[in-house]
Design a protein around this nucleic acid. Sequence first.
DNA 1: TTGTATGCGTTATCAC
DNA 2: GTGATAACGCATACAA
Lengths: 344, 344
Amino acid sequence: MRTKHPTVRIQDVARAAGVSVTTASRVLNNKDDVAPATYAKVRRVMQELNYTASLAAKSMRSHTANVIGLLVPEVVEVYHQEIIKGVGEAIRNSGYDLMIYTPGRPTGATWEQEHVALLSNGLTAGCIVVTPSAPRFPEGAKVVVIDPQGDGADVPSVVARNRVGALAVMEYLIGLGHRRIGFIGGRADTLSAIRRFQGYKDGLAAAGIAFDSALIVAGDYSYERGLVAAHQLLSLPAPPTAIFAANDRSAMGVLDVAQRMGLHVPQDLSVVGFDNLPETAQAVPGLTTVDQSIREMGHIAMDLMLRVLRGETLEPQLVKVSTRLIVRGSCQLPPTHYRSPSTT
Amino acid sequence: MRTKHPTVRIQDVARAAGVSVTTASRVLNNKDDVAPATYAKVRRVMQELNYTASLAAKSMRSHTANVIGLLVPEVVEVYHQEIIKGVGEAIRNSGYDLMIYTPGRPTGATWEQEHVALLSNGLTAGCIVVTPSAPRFPEGAKVVVIDPQGDGADVPSVVARNRVGALAVMEYLIGLGHRRIGFIGGRADTLSAIRRFQGYKDGLAAAGIAFDSALIVAGDYSYERGLVAAHQLLSLPAPPTAIFAANDRSAMGVLDVAQRMGLHVPQDLSVVGFDNLPETAQAVPGLTTVDQSIREMGHIAMDLMLRVLRGETLEPQLVKVSTRLIVRGSCQLPPTHYRSPSTT
DNA sequence: TTGTATGCGTTATCAC
DNA sequence: GTGATAACGCATACAA
């Protein structure tokens, strides 16, 4: 045993089996034109030496891997966990392995480079990317994007019907009688946040309610930002009777702030979120929100990827997953003293 | 632009910038001995060409990657999701990226080869493996194992105090007055299943209750197997007054079977699980179970890995995470007519 | 400070 | 059916 190399290479296998590296490689890849006796011997040696091919070297040479890459900015957030579940379910028996990559750094500028690195070489057959910072990809790249940044993606993408979902929220709140509806935005660079805000505005417009910028607070999809934003909204001279947060996590912040300020939900304040995270069902009161079947988005992304890999050309570049309003206990008619005089 | 190569290599960058590949490489890795002007120029070219280094080639050459591999047999099971969360939390700001690898195939014999492949080359600095089929690893391999198979691991491992947890369950049930306690086993090849069963037996022995093999049913940690096993136990001439399932998923099966058979839990039957999955808290009645802080196991595994990478030699090869009994509503005194005469 | 040459482990090409 | 050899994209000792 050469003490020089810690890892056993195909070269070692070849030497031990008394064949050439070429033959060893043939056995490794189950090529057909190899003598049964030779095949058996090489296989046995591989077992004995506990040999395993280097994925790096392998995929560097032959640019075809049977691995699908999934690039997520982070892995503990429920949203990303659900996507992982969805892709993980969909990948079963597809013949591909799954490789989830996530940066340890707080998603700096390097992140966008790292992810392309994974796919630009042959490490993965294709990549599913969640919220990329770089909307543009190399020409022939096999990429599918979930919730892309900006509007137009030049690659197949899957998004939720964010605007439609937000519109449903607005119709619901306005139907209850709310006129002053606060909005806490999401991460400004994501398409989802833009579309949800659009739904908010469209909902107001459809009901003939004037847009009031005082009721809009920027956010970033975080619980912490939700706290700050809620406090700001509820401290207004004429506070909103309802708050629509662009995602559930922010909405949870609103619930907590309301409680701290002595406001009862839904009697004093109606709250709506977006995402339908599992914990929103357990909250008291249950949070009214919008379900966007995040897991299904993972499924669809995987499906798109498989079709891309088969060489199909996909006409609909943007697949939209339906959303639906989930009504729970966090909304009610607005308190009478807040009703606008015009509505009597 | 050469149409020959689809991916842009460092060579292209070098040529476009009018430098050698060496210099380009130096810029890429932020070496200090490069002229500011050259550095800037190369950087700019990299931007323009949208260049990203090939992770495969990079890590094949220099055998040091800043990536930690996490190998899981599957990714949608809550148990694995929790581990992912734990490792994902722990890896933050550690300077390492996380790469989760999971096979698409139903975890055949290839699986054990694939995973070693990831770490034997330089793709990852080290690997955390969950439930490996091969307990032995190459000599200098940087490996940490979670819930290893068999008993002894020759690498740092983290396991839950399965036996102690199971023992607590038995003491609790026996304390309530149960004498005939059914047991549904886990996957026989996992250490966790073996230890939980040991806890069951030790619990009986400590109370001086004879072991009755009729009350033992083999399982595999699945919900479906839980259904079958529960049905088998409850159809006995003298059915158990309590069933202790080796994991929550099996226990959920028990709850469902009991309901179908018209048995009320906990009035007619007491049920205990193991794992403390989130859904057990929502079940009605809430499932009494054992919490083993799966997420914490991920934390600890990551911690061990970092120490291994620093070159530390770890004395305790087997780190045990404490477990604790979570009492909910699924247990009660046994029905009087089932009580053994000897206890009056 | 920059360039040249060589090797990492594997597969593809072309001979035998 | 099998073997020698040249790549794949990058990093590093060494020379300039």
